[in-house]
Amino acid sequence: MYWLSKTRYKIGLLLPSFCIYTVFILLPIAMAVRYSFTKYSGLGKPQFTGLQNYVRMFQDDLFWSSFKNTMIMFVLAFVLLLVLSFAIALLLNKKLKGSDLSKALIFSPAIIAPIIVGIIWVYILDPNVGIINGILDAIGAEGLKHQWIGGATLTPYSLAIVYFWQQLGYLVTIFIAGLKMLPEEVMEAAIIDGANEWQKVTRIIIPMMKSNISTVAILIITGVFKIFEIVQQTTGGGPNHLSETLVTYSYTMTFDSGDYGYGMSLATVTFIVSLIIVGIYSAFFGDKEEKKEAKARRKLAKEAKAAKKAAKGGAA
């Protein structure tokens, strides 16, 4: 495959993807940012209003409530998903009886459409017709009954649990794939050296699976900032927008209130917040070894290029 390594072929192969990515990802983002500085109803010409939408946003109680809900869901989902999906993957990676069935059961929510997930959980969480309050009623624990969804307090926590339930299987699968890739000789050496289970996990498995953990973490971060259908189906963002997330509030403002400019400013801030969180994660917890390797690879390539150039110059 010599011809594929030439720069012009690389460009030729990358160009279609780059064009599609530009047209369908970068351009819409640029347009959304542009509209965020305008007053626009979706019809006619947008009027440039400068930072007005952003000033309005920071004075908007509902923006802050949506932001708070999103962050509650993010923290809860991030902690639960990262820790438990890894723990479950470790468990399922052992050759235990029934582990294949368990894998299938844990993965099954991931193949259900999010809108159906919402419907299922309405029947579980609804304060009046839901299974949880029904069971609490049946066992005489009325005091533990709560407005799991539809109230102003518990809804974001409940929605984080729903998201956790939906995503768990998928993330467990990624971790299991990572565990399968670990070299057996390293694990055997650890056993010979007398490492216990905890030491194996903390000293060998976690360090060797850093890139898997990073992937999962970034999937969780980006996923939480895209939660939409679950909110729409369970509460519709209500009551009175109190269970909106940044994404659903942006949608409501854009399409229900016809305020495209403000809706796009909300979308832009959501995008920036998720980028910042991914950035913080990468800066503090990213795979530093991989970064070092990439840096070394870039340095080598640069040196090779310089050497080639020098050789060419010498030949001339």
Partner: peptide
């Protein structure tokens, strides 16, 4: 009403009905 104020009216009425406003 315009769409934004219409949405606010709906929100206002249901906010009062649900005791949030």
């Amino acid at each position: 009403l315009s769409p934004a104020v219409q949405e606010a009216l709906y929100d206002a009425i249901f906010g009062v009905i649900q005791g949030n406003y």
